[in-house]
Design a protein around this nucleic acid. Structure first.
Length: 208
DNA sequence: CACATGATCGCCT
DNA sequence: GGCGATCATGTGG
Protein backbone atom coordinates (compact mmCIF):
# COMPACT_ATOMS: atom_id res chain seq x y z
CA UNK A 1 0.00 0.00 0.00
CA UNK A 2 1.24 3.45 -0.88
CA UNK A 3 1.25 6.23 1.74
CA UNK A 4 -1.94 8.24 2.11
CA UNK A 5 -2.15 11.50 0.15
CA UNK A 6 -2.76 14.72 2.06
CA UNK A 7 -6.52 14.86 2.77
CA UNK A 8 -6.65 18.49 1.61
CA UNK A 9 -5.97 17.31 -1.95
CA UNK A 10 -9.17 15.31 -2.21
CA UNK A 11 -11.19 16.20 -5.23
CA UNK A 12 -14.52 14.67 -5.89
CA UNK A 13 -14.67 15.22 -9.61
CA UNK A 14 -13.66 12.17 -11.54
CA UNK A 15 -11.38 12.20 -14.53
CA UNK A 16 -14.43 11.87 -16.73
CA UNK A 17 -14.71 15.65 -16.49
CA UNK A 18 -11.12 16.31 -17.51
CA UNK A 19 -9.69 16.09 -21.00
CA UNK A 20 -7.35 13.20 -21.74
CA UNK A 21 -3.80 14.01 -22.70
CA UNK A 22 -3.05 12.41 -26.09
CA UNK A 23 -0.21 9.94 -25.89
CA UNK A 24 1.09 11.39 -29.14
CA UNK A 25 1.76 14.66 -27.32
CA UNK A 26 3.95 12.89 -24.76
CA UNK A 27 5.75 11.01 -27.53
CA UNK A 28 6.90 14.31 -28.99
CA UNK A 29 9.57 16.84 -28.06
CA UNK A 30 10.37 16.61 -24.35
CA UNK A 31 10.86 20.34 -23.72
CA UNK A 32 7.50 21.00 -25.39
CA UNK A 33 5.93 18.33 -23.21
CA UNK A 34 7.43 19.96 -20.11
CA UNK A 35 5.96 23.30 -21.17
CA UNK A 36 2.63 21.74 -22.07
CA UNK A 37 2.25 19.98 -18.73
CA UNK A 38 2.09 23.29 -16.86
CA UNK A 39 -1.57 23.52 -15.87
CA UNK A 40 -2.18 19.77 -16.20
CA UNK A 41 -3.41 17.64 -13.30
CA UNK A 42 -1.64 14.78 -11.57
CA UNK A 43 -3.86 12.58 -9.44
CA UNK A 44 -3.71 9.50 -7.24
CA UNK A 45 -6.56 7.21 -6.31
CA UNK A 46 -6.25 5.96 -2.74
CA UNK A 47 -8.77 4.31 -0.47
CA UNK A 48 -11.50 4.73 -3.05
CA UNK A 49 -11.00 8.48 -3.49
CA UNK A 50 -9.13 10.75 -5.86
CA UNK A 51 -6.47 13.21 -4.72
CA UNK A 52 -5.05 15.67 -7.21
CA UNK A 53 -3.11 18.87 -7.84
CA UNK A 54 -2.40 21.30 -10.66
CA UNK A 55 1.16 21.12 -12.02
CA UNK A 56 2.94 24.50 -11.97
CA UNK A 57 6.63 23.64 -12.46
CA UNK A 58 8.46 21.05 -14.58
CA UNK A 59 11.90 20.22 -15.96
CA UNK A 60 12.86 18.41 -19.15
CA UNK A 61 15.54 15.69 -19.09
CA UNK A 62 16.82 14.87 -22.55
CA UNK A 63 18.12 11.35 -22.23
CA UNK A 64 21.23 9.96 -23.88
CA UNK A 65 22.85 13.29 -24.67
CA UNK A 66 21.91 15.08 -21.43
CA UNK A 67 24.57 14.81 -18.70
CA UNK A 68 21.92 15.61 -16.09
CA UNK A 69 19.61 12.75 -17.09
CA UNK A 70 19.65 9.40 -15.33
CA UNK A 71 19.63 7.81 -18.79
CA UNK A 72 22.69 9.78 -19.91
CA UNK A 73 24.95 7.84 -22.24
CA UNK A 74 22.32 5.18 -22.63
CA UNK A 75 22.58 4.04 -19.04
CA UNK A 76 19.97 1.33 -18.52
CA UNK A 77 19.57 -0.15 -15.04
CA UNK A 78 16.55 -1.52 -13.19
CA UNK A 79 15.90 1.85 -11.55
CA UNK A 80 15.92 3.80 -14.83
CA UNK A 81 14.13 1.16 -16.88
CA UNK A 82 10.76 3.00 -16.83
CA UNK A 83 12.39 5.91 -18.70
CA UNK A 84 12.78 3.60 -21.70
CA UNK A 85 9.06 2.91 -21.92
CA UNK A 86 6.54 4.60 -24.20
CA UNK A 87 5.50 8.21 -23.55
CA UNK A 88 2.94 8.55 -20.78
CA UNK A 89 4.54 6.21 -18.26
CA UNK A 90 5.68 7.18 -14.76
CA UNK A 91 9.27 7.11 -13.51
CA UNK A 92 9.79 7.57 -9.76
CA UNK A 93 13.12 7.47 -7.97
CA UNK A 94 14.46 8.15 -4.48
CA UNK A 95 16.97 10.96 -3.87
CA UNK A 96 19.07 11.71 -0.83
CA UNK A 97 17.74 8.58 0.81
CA UNK A 98 14.44 10.18 1.72
CA UNK A 99 12.65 12.09 -1.04
CA UNK A 100 10.80 10.71 -4.03
CA UNK A 101 10.73 12.44 -7.44
CA UNK A 102 8.05 11.80 -10.07
CA UNK A 103 8.63 12.04 -13.82
CA UNK A 104 6.38 11.73 -16.86
CA UNK A 105 8.19 9.65 -19.48
CA UNK A 106 8.24 11.14 -22.98
CA UNK A 107 9.14 10.05 -26.52
CA UNK A 108 8.76 6.46 -27.64
CA UNK A 109 9.77 3.02 -26.42
CA UNK A 110 13.56 2.84 -26.23
CA UNK A 111 14.11 6.63 -26.09
CA UNK A 112 14.70 7.52 -22.44
CA UNK A 113 13.55 11.11 -21.90
CA UNK A 114 11.27 12.47 -19.18
CA UNK A 115 9.69 15.49 -17.50
CA UNK A 116 10.33 15.95 -13.77
CA UNK A 117 7.28 17.26 -11.88
CA UNK A 118 8.80 19.91 -9.61
CA UNK A 119 5.78 21.63 -8.09
CA UNK A 120 2.01 21.76 -8.04
CA UNK A 121 -0.74 23.64 -6.27
CA UNK A 122 -3.70 22.29 -4.33
CA UNK A 123 -7.20 23.74 -4.06
CA UNK A 124 -7.64 27.31 -2.77
CA UNK A 125 -6.75 27.47 0.90
CA UNK A 126 -4.07 24.78 0.92
CA UNK A 127 -0.57 25.92 1.94
CA UNK A 128 1.57 27.11 -0.96
CA UNK A 129 4.46 24.93 0.14
CA UNK A 130 2.49 21.69 0.37
CA UNK A 131 3.53 20.54 -3.12
CA UNK A 132 6.33 23.05 -3.77
CA UNK A 133 9.36 20.97 -4.76
CA UNK A 134 9.60 17.48 -6.28
CA UNK A 135 9.93 15.74 -2.91
CA UNK A 136 7.01 17.59 -1.37
CA UNK A 137 4.84 16.96 -4.44
CA UNK A 138 5.36 13.21 -4.12
CA UNK A 139 4.85 13.20 -0.38
CA UNK A 140 1.62 15.21 -0.57
CA UNK A 141 0.18 12.93 -3.24
CA UNK A 142 1.46 9.70 -1.70
CA UNK A 143 3.56 8.78 -4.74
CA UNK A 144 6.54 6.47 -4.17
CA UNK A 145 8.80 4.19 -6.17
CA UNK A 146 6.08 1.56 -5.80
CA UNK A 147 4.30 3.38 -8.65
CA UNK A 148 7.36 3.62 -10.92
CA UNK A 149 6.69 2.15 -14.36
CA UNK A 150 2.92 2.69 -14.34
CA UNK A 151 1.04 3.96 -17.37
CA UNK A 152 -0.47 7.37 -16.52
CA UNK A 153 -2.90 7.28 -19.44
CA UNK A 154 -4.47 3.88 -18.88
CA UNK A 155 -6.99 4.47 -16.12
CA UNK A 156 -4.74 3.29 -13.30
CA UNK A 157 -4.28 4.60 -9.78
CA UNK A 158 -1.97 7.43 -10.78
CA UNK A 159 -3.22 9.54 -13.67
CA UNK A 160 -2.44 12.60 -15.71
CA UNK A 161 -5.03 14.82 -17.44
CA UNK A 162 -5.43 18.25 -18.95
CA UNK A 163 -6.63 20.85 -16.47
CA UNK A 164 -9.56 23.21 -17.05
CA UNK A 165 -7.38 26.32 -17.32
CA UNK A 166 -4.30 27.20 -19.34
CA UNK A 167 -1.47 29.12 -17.63
CA UNK A 168 -1.31 32.78 -18.70
CA UNK A 169 2.47 33.13 -18.60
CA UNK A 170 5.12 30.43 -18.62
CA UNK A 171 8.69 31.32 -17.70
CA UNK A 172 11.84 29.37 -18.56
CA UNK A 173 15.10 29.03 -16.58
CA UNK A 174 17.97 26.57 -16.16
CA UNK A 175 17.27 23.42 -14.17
CA UNK A 176 17.77 23.20 -10.42
CA UNK A 177 20.22 20.96 -8.60
CA UNK A 178 22.26 19.78 -11.59
CA UNK A 179 25.47 21.78 -11.15
CA UNK A 180 27.45 18.57 -11.63
CA UNK A 181 26.23 18.38 -15.25
CA UNK A 182 28.64 21.02 -16.59
CA UNK A 183 27.33 23.09 -19.47
CA UNK A 184 23.99 21.25 -19.41
CA UNK A 185 23.32 22.87 -16.03
CA UNK A 186 22.59 26.08 -17.95
CA UNK A 187 20.22 24.68 -20.56
CA UNK A 188 16.82 26.43 -20.40
CA UNK A 189 14.71 23.38 -19.57
CA UNK A 190 12.81 24.43 -16.44
CA UNK A 191 9.27 25.71 -16.98
CA UNK A 192 6.87 27.27 -14.50
CA UNK A 193 3.61 29.16 -14.23
CA UNK A 194 4.65 32.78 -13.58
CA UNK A 195 1.41 33.44 -11.71
CA UNK A 196 1.65 30.56 -9.25
CA UNK A 197 2.95 31.05 -5.74
CA UNK A 198 3.64 27.34 -5.34
CA UNK A 199 6.72 27.40 -7.59
CA UNK A 200 9.91 26.12 -5.90
CA UNK A 201 13.52 27.27 -6.18
CA UNK A 202 15.36 30.47 -5.24
CA UNK A 203 13.34 33.67 -5.72
CA UNK A 204 16.21 35.17 -7.68
CA UNK A 205 15.81 32.56 -10.40
CA UNK A 206 12.05 33.02 -10.63
CA UNK A 207 11.92 36.76 -11.27
CA UNK A 208 11.27 38.09 -14.75
C1' DC B 1 16.06 36.55 1.78
C1' DA B 2 20.80 34.27 1.47
C1' DC B 3 23.53 30.74 2.89
C1' DA B 4 25.09 26.53 5.60
C1' DT B 5 24.35 22.09 7.40
C1' DG B 6 22.70 17.47 8.62
C1' DA B 7 19.65 13.71 7.54
C1' DT B 8 19.72 9.02 5.24
C1' DC B 9 19.94 5.08 1.81
C1' DG B 10 19.39 3.09 -2.83
C1' DC B 11 22.05 2.97 -6.69
C1' DC B 12 26.03 2.50 -9.39
C1' DT B 13 31.17 1.77 -10.04
C1' DG C 1 32.68 3.49 -0.97
C1' DG C 2 30.76 7.89 -2.71
C1' DC C 3 27.19 10.53 -3.94
C1' DG C 4 22.88 12.60 -5.23
C1' DA C 5 17.02 15.83 -10.37
C1' DT C 6 15.91 17.56 -1.74
C1' DC C 7 14.08 19.38 2.58
C1' DA C 8 13.89 21.37 7.24
C1' DT C 9 16.06 24.07 10.30
C1' DG C 10 19.36 27.11 11.86
C1' DT C 11 22.03 31.52 11.52
C1' DG C 12 22.63 36.37 10.09
C1' DG C 13 21.34 40.70 7.30
Amino acid sequence: MTPAPDPRLRFDETFAGLEEIPRAFLRGDTAEAARGLIGAWIAHRHGGRWYGARIVETEAYLGRDDPAAHSCGGRRTPRVEPMYRDGGHLYVYLVYGMHHCANVVTRTEGVAEAVLLRAAEGPAGTPEKLLSGPGRLCRALGITTAASGMDLLAGGKVRLARGPDRPRTIRVTPRIGVAYAGEAARWPLRFFDAHSRAVSGPARLNRA
